[in-house]
């Protein structure tokens, strides 16, 4: 069966890729919208504006 190797790699590549895309999107969204992270993000966003270049 000369084609098995390629077909298997292909199946894995395509199948896993799709699963991975979905999992990653969900993971990212959960991280970004996790109730606790809002405050941290606000703090980070404002952090660059204060104390800029002052000793």
């Amino acid at each position: 069966m000369p084609e098995t190797g390629h077909a298997l790699t292909l199946l894995f590549a395509k199948g896993f890729g799709l699963f991975y895309l979905l999992a990653l999107s969900v993971g990212t969204l959960i991280y970004a919208f996790w109730p606790g992270s809002g405050k941290r993000f606000d703090h980070a966003a404002k952090s660059v504006l204060r104390g800029e270049d002052q000793p």
Binding site: T28, Y31, F41, A45
Partner: peptide, 17 residues
Amino acid sequence: LPVRAQRPIFSYRMSII
């Protein structure tokens, strides 16, 4: 850009996503 505009980035969440 935020530093020069003196405004925090519009959506920090969006930057992470």
